[in-house]
């Protein structure tokens, strides 16, 4: 907190309100100097130790998966029948899999695709969901009714079912898996954004802008979007977590990416046999990586939500 200097204060206005007080302070009192909204949210976020840990985990995995292969060269394209299912050792730190690929290198490569799919799917779901939800919330009436019933319908069909059935029909690439997941996970964000738009629309500051003569476009651009943004941002992290879990399920059920590309999910496709054969290095390292990344996303999301909430709820 900094003190306000006398030159900042308003002089010359007779301070009617406090007749027996020398008019040094502005009538309205001084302003407690705090950080800006975003900075305050950042501070709140950083003060949450778990969130920092989560963020650290995410940063670590992004760096390790994308930069790691530059330092740890492995062959991930041509299978080598001579070294299949090798236990961890000096040449292969985490052993080799049933195709003879180095497991650590594969975790890095698989992490790249998993993170990419998670990110693209979440991004697509967010864009579609935000536009759809905003449209429903802003137009209202019958349009809103029809749009939201459609969301109800789609939400009633278990996501994994749709994704699995579609996965039987399309060749599995990073792009196609992102598309399939993204195209069917926008429902929750659309509901969130619609709800946010509906509550924002009747908030006094939006009413005030309307009374000033603000156009609909200005209302949306200046007030609704910036205020709905925090909900959307928080949801992205949860969407990434859910998408990564979903590709893990796809991989486990045998609908992974086309050989030799792989994601963490695909690497767990043969996990059952690996466990039974005692090849633990083919199951636990990659499984733990997956759990850590998903958990980190959830932690960051939770903390972001709290941070944004704190900011709006202050005082």
């Amino acid at each position: 907190m900094t003190e306000l200097g006398a030159e900042d204060l308003v002089g010359g206005v007779p301070s009617l309100g406090s007749p027996n007080v020398p008019t040094l302070a502005p009538e309205g009192g001084e302003v407690q100097v705090l950080a800006s909204g975003w900075r305050l949210a950042t501070r709140e976020f950083l003060s949450n130790r778990l969130a920092v840990v989560g963020l650290g985990i995410l940063v670590f995995f992004v760096l390790a998966c994308f930069l790691g292969p530059l330092f740890y060269h492995t062959n991930q394209t041509i299978s080598n029948p001579l070294v299949t299912d090798g236990a961890p050792g000096a040449t292969h730190l985490l052993g080799t899999d049933d195709n003879g690929f180095d497991e650590l290198g594969r975790i890095m490569a698989g992490g790249q695709t998993a993170l990419e799919i998670g990110f693209f799917a979440a991004l697509m779901a967010t864009v579609i969901g935000t536009l759809y939800g905003a449209l429903a919330g802003l137009v209202g009436g019958i349009v809103d009714g029809v749009l939201m019933r459609l969301v109800d319908i789609l939400l009633s069909i278990p996501l994994l079912f749709i994704v699995l059935v579609l996965a039987t029909r399309y060749s599995a690439t990073v792009l196609s898996q992102s598309l399939i997941i993204g195209l069917f996970s926008w429902l929750v964000p659309s509901r969130l954004v619609r709800g946010e738009v509906l509550t924002l629309r009747v908030r006094d500051f939006v009413v005030a802008a309307r009374i000033m003569g603000s156009s609909q476009r200005r209302l949306i651009v200046r007030h609704l979007i910036p205020n709905a943004l925090s909900v959307v941002i928080v949801n992205i992290t949860f969407l990434i977590a859910d998408s990564i879990l979903l590709i893990a399920y796809l991989g486990f059920l045998g609908f992974g990416l086309t050989f030799p590309t792989a994601s963490w999910g695909d690497m767990l496709g043969n996990a059952q046999q690996a466990v039974e054969s005692g090849y633990w290095w083919l199951v636990y390292p990659v499984g733990i990586c997956l759990v850590l990344v998903v958990m980190a996303c959830n932690l960051v999301g939770d903390a972001l939500r709290d941070a944004f909430d704190v900011r709006l709820r202050r005082r």
């Binding site: 306000l4 900042d8 308003v10 502005p26 009538e27 302003v31 100097v33 705090l34």
Partner: peptide, 14 residues
């Protein structure tokens, strides 16, 4: 009756 320094602040600071 508000100080001009207030102009750069956000509502939650008041």
């Amino acid at each position: 009756g508000l100080p001009l320094t207030a102009l750069e602040r956000y509502p939650h600071e008041f």
